[in-house]
């Protein structure tokens, strides 16, 4: 019994010292991590907003894909479109992205954020140029969802990472439909 208590106390002691050390390190690094994450969101918002002004964020809880909406206003203060924070599924698991739309559902720009795609293949979707093929689609021109709806160069660019491409395009198309339903509100 005595031996049993000794073993338990030793293990508990080691664990609590480890926990205390971690708590200290966390207090040092947590503000930096939070600041970095906020900076990434801020930068991406500015990039996808192009020339529009960004309004206040609204968090969306009841939608599986759309997690937040930022309204976009033009120089006269009228609502021109929205930036959506989206989640989707790629080859390596779930990803998050941010996409801006005009009020009629046209894609203005998009960025892939956190993801687990394959480096050298699906990871290419992180490049801003990857999203160029979606720009201007979503209204009269549907968002391309299959490789054969793309031009030859664009189809080559997504070759080897079709699942990433379909994941991104499905999410973008969903966002476009979502924006149309918002109807400029």
């Amino acid at each position: 019994m005595k031996n049993f208590a000794k073993i338990g106390i030793t293990l508990a002691l080691i664990a609590s010292i480890a926990a205390a050390a971690l708590a200290f390190i966390n207090s040092v690094t947590a503000p930096r991590i939070a600041a970095y994450d906020a900076m990434v969101v801020e930068m991406t918002l500015k990039e996808v907003a192009h020339d529009y002004a960004i309004g206040d964020k609204r968090t969306i809880d009841d939608d599986g894909t759309v997690t937040a909406v930022h309204p976009l206003t033009d120089s006269e203060g009228a609502t021109a479109g929205y930036i959506l924070s989206l989640t989707g599924n790629g080859y390596g698991g779930p990803f998050t992205m941010m996409a801006s739309y005009l009020a009629d559902g046209t894609v203005v720009d998009a960025r892939l954020l956190t993801n687990s795609e394959t480096p050298g293949l699906g990871k290419k979707a992180e490049n801003p140029s990857y999203m160029e093929k979606f720009q201007g689609t979503g209204n009269d021109n549907p968002v391309p969802q299959k490789k054969d709806e793309l031009s030859k160069e664009d189809a080559d660019a997504v070759g080897g990472s079709t699942i990433t491409f379909t994941g991104v395009s499905k999410t973008l198309a969903y966002g476009s439909a979502y924006v149309k339903e918002l109807g400029g509100k």
Binding site: T10, L11, I14, A15, A18, A19, A21, L22, I25, N26, V28, T29, A30, R32, I33, Y36
Partner: peptide
Amino acid sequence: PSYIVIIAAFVTIVEMMMHAF
């Protein structure tokens, strides 16, 4: 279990440091 606690503590430190810096 003791080794795992020690190792896990240092891994978590590395993880937090890398995330921050």
